[in-house]
């Protein structure tokens, strides 16, 4: 399963780039990123090329950061693709807590990333339907082949 890096950031100018600065210094690549805004603070969620290294580097710099397992699903970039995936979860009443997607190769390949309330069950269900649940090392080596 893939690991997402969650970082606590004050909601004020200069904090987000303090995080990206640490990643750059360690030559870590960012695949995707979202920010959950909670007023005075936010939680930045990142998919990066080396989550363990990134986590250690941020914690060393005094950041509050944590690694969280997430479902990263490889899918075809076509109309209805996401809907089919979500139908599978809805049938089993699995709740999606947070999600985001990114395109790897337009018209061909996309990745859908999500936090759900029953991670292992969801992974099993989706794999059984022929969807590819990406492991860390695959996710970060995805190429626009």
């Amino acid at each position: 399963m893939a690991e997402q890096l969650n970082v606590f950031v004050d909601n004020r100018p200069g904090r987000l780039n303090a995080v990206t600065g640490v990643l750059r210094d360690h030559r870590i690549d960012i695949r995707a990123m979202t920010i959950a805004d909670h007023g005075a603070y936010g939680v930045a969620k990142l998919l990066v090329s080396d989550p363990r290294l990134a986590h250690r580097a941020l914690v060393d710099q005094g950041f509050a950061a944590a690694l969280k397992p997430v479902l990263a699903i490889a899918m075809e970039d076509r109309p209805g693709g996401l809907h089919e995936l979500l139908e599978v979860l809805a049938e089993r009443s699995i709740n999606v807590l947070d999600a985001y997607g990114f395109v790897v190769a337009p018209g061909r390949r996309a990745v859908w990333c999500m936090e759900v309330d029953a991670l292992d069950e969801a992974a099993r269900l989706l794999a059984a339907r022929g969807l590819e649940v990406l492991a860390d090392h695959v996710l970060y080596r995805l190429e626009a082949e």
């Binding site: 997402q4 890096l5 606590f8 909670h38 603070y41 939680v43 914690v59 950061a65 969280k68």
Partner: peptide, 11 residues
């Protein structure tokens, strides 16, 4: 930073 879970709901 130690007990931080990464989950905004915990915050």
């Amino acid at each position: 930073p130690k007990p931080f879970t990464g989950d905004p709901r915990d915050l």
